[in-house]
């Protein structure tokens, strides 16, 4: 019996989105088949790996991570340059200092830092609010205006604030990251709402809400697989936006990346364990179809890039 390779017929395709400009611009998306199935589709762009920086020092990040970042963490511009030197495809600036519970920095302060970081690097920039839906509207408006022309990805637009955040991205020629809460239909709904207000669907990057290995990773994994199936097999245009996975923020708050060797001897050494935790989480999201990853440890980002190279062949 000869093997006839059973191929799927895909009617849909993932949109391509370019970020940044010039020689270091990054394009994501464009897949015409389920992840890495080269025998039945094409993958013009490799998934991009962004390293995260903040507008404040990473004082509350785990020790392993602080050690990996070193002194660069004390200044957002230096930190961003450090990420670029570490081989990141992009920098993700999270304006955590604007959160009312953090430093409650003003939108103007945040915008200034965003502009400085954008000027200091030549790889593309992603600008993320602190996750405080209300404050983020002002912060992202200011930051988007201050980085106009840099073709950034701005986010995250969520159900509570998508109109303002999307307007800020639109007015300043940026791309938009839209996050929904771990649900295929909610992800689609948010994309529909955005297009109804006139936002070009081919400028949206979808964040299905990430989770860490061991902490609900399977939910994100299956939501992503279902989104991709709807996009490719059912040709659902509202599901065809590239996917970003914000994994560092999830990975580096679980016990496995923080508990010292002495506390959990059966878990093995903390340094390797923490690095493996972010690397394996990345591997899972890449396999499920992530087009872009936001990571924190330069070493884990390097592992993610290594596996991406192996997958692209």
């Amino acid at each position: 019996m000869a093997l006839v390779i059973p191929k799927e017929t895909y009617s849909g395709k993932i949109y391509s989105i370019q970020l940044g400009s010039g020689a270091k611009a990054v394009t994501i998306g464009g897949a015409s088949a389920l992840p890495f199935l080269g025998f039945e589709g094409t993958f013009p762009n490799r998934p991009a790996v962004a390293l995260e920086v903040m507008d404040i020092a990473p004082d509350d990040w785990p020790e392993t991570l602080k050690k990996a970042i070193g002194s660069a963490g004390s200044n957002p511009v230096q930190w961003a340059k450090f990420c670029q030197q570490s081989g990141a495809d992009m920098v993700a600036l999270r304006l955590m200092g604007t959160h009312p519970d953090q430093k409650n920095k003003s939108p103007e302060e945040a915008a200034k830092i965003a502009a400085e970081v954008a000027a200091a690097i030549d790889i593309p920039l992603m600008i993320l609010g602190s996750g405080h839906a209300e404050k983020d509207t002002q912060v992202l408006q200011a930051a988007a205006a201050a980085t106009r022309g840099k073709n950034c990805a701005i986010g995250k637009a969520v159900e509570e604030n998508y109109k303002t955040v999307a307007a800020a991205a639109m007015a300043n020629d940026h791309k938009l990251i839209a996050m929904s809460q771990l649900d295929v239909n909610l992800a689609k709904q948010l994309n529909i709402l955005l297009t109804q207000m006139g936002f070009d669907k081919e400028r949206i990057i979808m964040d299905p809400m990430s989770s860490a290995l061991g902490y609900g990773l399977e939910y994100t994994y299956s939501v992503m697989e279902r989104i991709r199936l709807a996009a490719l097999l059912q040709n659902d245009p509202m599901m065809q936006t590239p996917i970003v996975c914000d994994i560092g923020a999830n990975v580096w708050k679980v016990k496995e990346t923080m508990a010292p060797d002495a506390e959990m001897p059966e878990w093995g050494g903390l340094e390797d364990r923490a690095l493996a935790w972010e690397s394996v989480t990345a591997s899972a999201m890449i396999t499920a179809g992530a087009d872009m990853l936001i990571m924190r440890h330069p070493g884990a980002a390097a592992k993610a890039k290594e596996v991406i190279s192996e997958l692209m062949g």
Partner: peptide, 10 residues
């Protein structure tokens, strides 16, 4: 041990 923790959790 650290490697198995990650792989078995996955």
């Amino acid at each position: 041990k650290w490697k198995m923790l990650a792989l078995l959790s996955l």
